[in-house]
Amino acid sequence: MRIVIDQQLPPVLATWLRLQGLDATHVRDLGLRDRPDHDIWREALRDGSVVLSRDADFANFARQDAKGRLVWLRIGNCSNAILIQTFERHWPAILARIKGGERLIEVRA
């Protein structure tokens, strides 16, 4: 399973997820840095990736597309350290839900 990290989130999150043994890539590393959301969504659909974003546009895509998968972060702006702490706390449950087949996972801190 590959996880695509949206532009609104820092590349350090992809690094943290890779340290957890996951295939995580930030959109800038995919050459999609300033591309429209629908281009990022299509790239994720192409290979079955999970998108990780704060953007409500992706939630709309996930609701309309039975093949897409999204982890939708509903947290405000925060430091990278706080973001990583939030993931450390929530990631086991998020991963279980992804593996359980959930397509739209909303995370509130």
Rank of each mutant, 00 (worst) to 15 (best):
1 M>N: 00
1 M>S: 05
3 I>A: 04
3 I>R: 00
6 D>C: 06
6 D>F: 02
6 D>Y: 07
8 Q>M: 06
10 P>A: 07
10 P>K: 10
11 P>F: 07
11 P>E: 05
12 V>A: 10
12 V>R: 03
13 L>Y: 00
13 L>M: 10
14 A>L: 04
17 L>F: 03
19 L>S: 10
19 L>P: 01
20 Q>P: 08
20 Q>W: 02
22 L>K: 01
23 D>L: 07
23 D>V: 10
24 A>H: 00
24 A>V: 01
25 T>Q: 06
26 H>K: 05
27 V>Q: 01
27 V>F: 01
27 V>W: 00
28 R>V: 11
28 R>P: 02
28 R>Q: 12
29 D>E: 15
29 D>R: 12
30 L>C: 14
31 G>T: 09
31 G>Y: 07
33 R>V: 12
33 R>K: 11
34 D>E: 14
34 D>L: 13
35 R>C: 04
35 R>P: 03
35 R>E: 15
36 P>F: 07
38 H>Q: 08
39 D>W: 15
41 W>R: 03
41 W>Q: 04
41 W>D: 04
42 R>V: 08
42 R>Y: 12
45 L>F: 08
47 D>M: 07
48 G>K: 13
50 V>H: 00
53 S>A: 15
53 S>T: 04
53 S>K: 01
54 R>P: 03
54 R>E: 04
54 R>M: 03
55 D>Y: 09
57 D>F: 00
60 N>E: 15
61 F>I: 07
65 D>N: 15
66 A>P: 08
66 A>D: 11
66 A>N: 09
67 K>V: 11
70 L>T: 03
70 L>I: 11
72 W>I: 01
73 L>Y: 02
73 L>R: 06
73 L>V: 05
74 R>F: 08
74 R>G: 09
74 R>T: 05
76 G>D: 11
77 N>C: 05
78 C>L: 14
78 C>H: 11
81 A>F: 05
82 I>L: 09
82 I>K: 12
82 I>E: 13
83 L>T: 13
84 I>L: 15
84 I>C: 09
86 T>K: 04
86 T>S: 07
86 T>N: 10
87 F>Q: 02
89 R>C: 08
90 H>I: 06
91 W>I: 04
94 I>Q: 06
95 L>T: 06
95 L>N: 05
96 A>N: 09
97 R>T: 13
98 I>Q: 03
98 I>S: 03
99 K>Y: 08
102 E>Y: 05
103 R>C: 03
103 R>Q: 10
103 R>E: 01
106 E>L: 14
107 V>E: 14
108 R>C: 08
108 R>K: 14
108 R>S: 15
109 A>C: 13
109 A>I: 14
109 A>K: 10
